[in-house]
């Protein structure tokens, strides 16, 4: 699997395959949401039940992990996990994962990093925030600072490495299957199930859970 193809340029910025695939995934999510929330009534039809279940489960998860007073983060967390779920499993519907590009994962991890710092500053005040680096012992200050920066690095590289590794293994598998004498119909199926579906959904869950833990940890 080579790097993302570049399709052209717009105002000096390259239009890469990652960018185009992200637009396609955004369009898919918008279509799914439009179908699920069309014609909402007090006695829900089947599509509305699915939408309500998703929102309720996510609200429960945010309430459990971050605390009941931080429910304002639930819409962002749901948007994050929906985008990641569609983006990581792109191997199934033939697109190169946008999260197999370090630019995309670093962007998402920086969102979490800036949210952590901003809400930590806002809820603890400048003095409390700076004192937080001196806990539990003052000589741990450089380790705490590096630990703060280690969080977005590990978030982004974990997601990038898992998706790129899965993509390369699938590409190697397909090129190895190209030299067979019979038509290899069912052989890639368990690999797609493990690398695309299981690993993709697990990594999106991990990214969202870690973001929730970091943001709520910085706020108290």
């Amino acid at each position: 699997m080579e790097g993302p193809k570049i399709y052209g340029e717009l105002f000096g910025l390259p239009i890469t395959q990652t960018l185009v695939n992200t637009w396609i995934i955004m369009a898919m999510i918008l279509v799914v949401c439009a179908i699920l929330t069309k014609n909402m009534q007090k006695r829900p039809g089947k599509a509305q039940v699915i939408a309500e279940t998703i929102v309720t489960v996510m609200d429960g998860l945010v309430g459990q992990t971050m605390g009941k007073d931080k429910m304002k983060f639930a819409p962002w967390m749901l948007a994050l996990i929906m985008f990641l779920a569609f983006a990581n499993t792109s191997g199934i519907y033939g697109l190169r994962s946008p999260t197999a590009d370090l630019n995309c994962t670093v962007g998402l991890a920086l969102m979490t990093f800036f949210m952590t710092q901003f809400y930590g500053l806002k809820s603890k005040g400048l003095g409390g925030f700076l004192k937080g680096f001196l806990e539990p012992m003052p000589f741990l200050l450089p380790i705490n600072i590096i630990g703060e920066f280690a969080n977005p690095v590990s978030l982004s590289f974990r997601l990038f490495g898992n998706m790129l590794g899965g993509g390369i293994i699938m590409a190697l598998l397909y090129s190895a299957l190209a030299g067979l004498y019979f038509f290899p119909v069912l052989i890639p199926v368990p690999f797609h199930f493990y690398f695309d579906i299981f690993s993709g959904l697990l990594q999106s869950f991990i990214f969202t859970m870690l973001s929730m833990v970091f943001i709520s940890g910085a706020m108290d």
Partner: peptide, 10 residues
């Protein structure tokens, strides 16, 4: 889970 993830991040 929160304690485990915080310790793992360190």
């Amino acid at each position: 889970i929160r304690t485990m993830l915080l310790g793992a991040a360190v």
